[in-house]
Simulated scan of single mutants.
Amino acid sequence: MAPDLPVTVTRSYIPGAIGRIAELHGTYYAEHWGFGLFFEAKVATELSAFLTAYDPGRHALWVAAINGRVEGGIVIDGTHAAESGAHLRWFILSDALRGKGMGRQLINRAVDFCRGKAYRSIFLWTFEGLDVARHLYESVGFSLTRQQKGAGWGIEVNEQMFEYKLLPKLNG
């Protein structure tokens, strides 16, 4: 077995990130959940729009790469952080990174970013059945706060919203 290659995590866009993050979502969710064109196109379109309007003062993108090839990513969208919390989005890892602690590292970076911005909460939408992801979310402090049927993924699923409440920093 070949040794693991070093992973580089960059807090910014790198060329190819939009296409590769969309590809990772498209292939994983097609293979495991039967999602199709609708979902992959939605990821690519929304991620492109987000990055076009990217504001590093309130948003964050981390890209994990091996030898320059994007193998994962995570986003914090702070657009409505004051009203409804920061939105954790487009969290994905390739098979090359799953089960090696990179997911925890990325989610911890996202939480630390939100804490540093004094955001009061973080939320994410996922769906029932992603048990490994749910375990990771709950292990770092997210709680399931809402469930509903929805077809925003291209097929009907039991959508789940997880929230992480951040404590305000104390002065002194």
Rank of each mutant, 00 (worst) to 15 (best):
A2Y: 09
D4I: 08
L5C: 00
T10H: 09
R11A: 15
S12W: 06
Y13M: 12
I14E: 15
H25P: 07
H25G: 08
T27F: 03
Y29G: 04
Y29I: 09
H32Q: 10
G36Q: 07
G36Y: 06
L37T: 13
A41H: 13
K42V: 05
V43W: 01
A44C: 11
A44V: 01
E46R: 12
L47P: 03
L51K: 08
T52D: 13
Y54I: 04
P56V: 11
H59E: 12
H59K: 11
L61K: 00
V63Q: 03
A65C: 11
E71K: 04
V75H: 03
I76G: 07
T79R: 15
A81R: 14
E83K: 15
A86R: 05
F91P: 00
L93K: 00
K100Y: 03
V111K: 02
V111N: 02
D112Y: 11
Y119T: 03
R120Q: 13
I122L: 15
L124W: 05
W125G: 11
W125M: 12
F127T: 05
G129D: 10
L136E: 01
F142I: 01
T145I: 12
T145R: 11
Q147K: 14
G152I: 07
F162M: 06
K165Y: 00
L166D: 01
K169H: 13
